[in-house]
Structure formats: C-alpha cells, structure tokens
C-alpha cells in the first residue's frame, strides 16, 4: 500500500487513522478529516476537507495523480516503497553483478567498460541451448567490468558484467529528507 506521496519534490507520509466516525488521514503526523464524493462531470470529485467542500478534478495514470485544485494543476506521485527500497539497496551496494541465468556462450558484447548505461540497455547477448538471451542493464549505471568476451563459454551463475550504480537518486532523496 502506498503510504508516501511525492508532491512538488517533497515526500509526505499519508496514513489512514482507523477507528474514527469519519475517514481521517494522518498527513505527516497531522490528522485531517476527509471525504471524497463523485462530482457531476467526468474526472470531477468533491473533496470534503475539514469543514470545507471543494470541487476538484483528479485523474491518475501509473501511480501518478494529476489534480486540478483551486485553479492549478498538480502532480502527486504515489511512492512504491518496495521499488524504492530495492533501488536504495542497489544504490548502497554501489555495484551489481549480472550473473548467467544458464550455462552458455557469449555471442556479442554490446557495451564497453566504463560506458554509462541506462536501465534496459543491451549489455550482452548470450546463447544457450540454441536460444539467444539479451542481458540488459537492470538500472542506470556504469559498466565496471565486462567479465567475459565474445565466444567465451560459462557456467550458470558466472558473472557476465559488473555494473556500478549511480546513486544520484538516493543522494537526491537523502538531500530532500535532510531538507525536511
């Protein structure tokens, strides 16, 4: 469940407060009595916020909420805490080895050592049991080492490529947290 939302680059914790007569959200530790009812138009909702009622337009796509509120559009991102925890772990370790999923032979090396790569970039093509598999970067980073050259054969679990991760994101996040 998303309990953190990013608005204008700042993360806020939003937690339900159960056991109340109405829906109460604890936003960064402050309780707010809230409610939402559908409005008349598509995408329109009526926000009950404390004593106030306001017409708001809200749509979402892929965990991002676009909200038109008091004449201004805003973007609120629901944080996927699990994805963030994984990203942090990779960023902290600073390095990740891409292991061979099965024994095989290197067909092609698509990058060079020291090259900056983005998540999804092709690093290497391997062949095993007459099937070729693309080894792609799981996240942004720098190629620290290409452990095997074209034509080299390897066992399952062999290190194919070592990636150094860029941890700008986590640094930026930490900086944000410090700011808060």
């Amino acid at each position: 469940m998303a309990t953190e939302f990013d608005l204008e680059g700042l993360c806020s914790s939003v937690l339900p407060v159960h056991g109340q007569d109405a829906l109460v959200l604890s936003i960064d530790g402050r309780p707010f009595r809230v409610g939402l009812t559908p409005g008349r138009a598509t995408g329109e909702v009526v926000l009950e916020f404390g004593e106030e009622r306001e017409r708001v337009f809200a749509v979402q796509r892929g965990g991002i909420h676009f909200i038109h509120f008091r004449g201004r559009a805003h973007r609120v991102e629901a944080i996927d805490a699990l994805a963030r925890a994984r990203k942090r772990a990779v960023a902290e370790s600073g390095e990740e080895s891409l292991l061979a999923p099965m024994p095989g032979v290197v067909v092609r090396v698509a990058v060079e050592a020291d090259e900056e790569v983005e998540a999804g970039d092709l690093l290497m093509v391997i062949e095993s049991m007459k099937l070729q598999t693309s080894i792609r970067a799981p996240h942004d980073g720098r190629v620290a080492e290409i452990c095997l050259g074209t034509g080299a054969s390897f066992e399952q679990g062999a290190t194919l490529v070592r990636l150094e991760t860029r941890d700008e994101d986590s640094e930026a996040e930490q900086a944000k947290e410090r700011e808060r």
Partner: peptide, 23 residues
C-alpha cells in the same frame, strides 16, 4: 534463493523484506 531453494526471495534490507512480505 539461487541454489538450495530453501528460501524463495532474497531481500537487501529489512524494509524491503517486510514490504515484500506484505505483498
């Protein structure tokens, strides 16, 4: 998680493991 199959998922932090557990 890779060889013995005694466990199903590896996690890098308690937070990750707990979030994964909740999932």
């Amino acid at each position: 998680t890779r060889t013995s199959g005694v466990a199903d998922y590896a996690a890098d932090s308690e937070e990750e493991a707990i979030l994964l557990g909740r999932e």
